[in-house]
Design a binder for these strands. Sequence first.
DNA 1: GCGACGAGACGTCACGAATC
DNA 2: GATTCGTGACGTCTCGTCGC
Length: 256
Amino acid sequence: METVVDSQQDGSASDCVTDREAIQNQSTHSPVSTVTQIHYLHSVPRKILNELSSDTPGVPKIEEEKSEEEVTPSNIATMAVPTSIYQTSTGQYIAIAQGGAIQIANPGSDGVQGLQTFTMTNSGTPQPGATIVQYATQSGDGTQQFFVPGSQVVVQAATGDMPTYQIRTPTSSLPQGVVMAASPGSLHSPQQLADEVTRKREHRLMKNREAARECRKKKKEYVKCLENRVAVLENQNKTLIEELKALKDLYCHKTE
DNA sequence: GCGACGAGACGTCACGAATC
DNA sequence: GATTCGTGACGTCTCGTCGC
């Protein structure tokens, strides 16, 4: 009589863990809701910015509105020196440059995703004292314009998938959620800010790289385990068939 | 030798689930 | 609610094989 070799004896088959039984369909849509203040989509710019960043993938870059002759992509380190840097209570950095560019960095997310630049111009102002913020979308859809009363305080009005920003006139009572830096620029230089964002991004990428490696390893082991189990069950099946056949023969001999 | 092709490994992004 | 983790999907690279 044959001995049935079960992989559970060596413990490998019993260690078969079902990773994810059902592979769910993953939709790539990003919900868009209408917000009355300045807003941008989180999911869209990331890929677009990566496409825009040419030779060094992984290095976040800010695409500013450029003049005809100036095509050099500006990254964080080379952007205009901000005159005011604010930090919201959520840790977000908002810098307003001398040229009127508003830069928003979201340290909670990766560098590319969380960086936005708005350019302020004063042309065609329909309201007295108002400033038009030109929001250049990275998708190439054109620019959206927002009217800004007076000057330059950017307020994060909402967070989540659809963060919104309000630009308000600074008053004695700051809007809730906004922390003004003691002296503009003293919190972090743009370089430090960029370094921090880059560092966090690289850390996240490194962790994800390792996780992906681990996940693949796990998946390979799981597949191996399943193949092993198939082999064992086939072997078991074959043995049982032979056993059945032998019993049948024995029964036939006895009845004869 | 060389281009085409498939397989496997890898990095990254996106997103849901789990955890804090 | 924010952060971290796990993983599917996608694109890219490398390597081996095959036909020419």
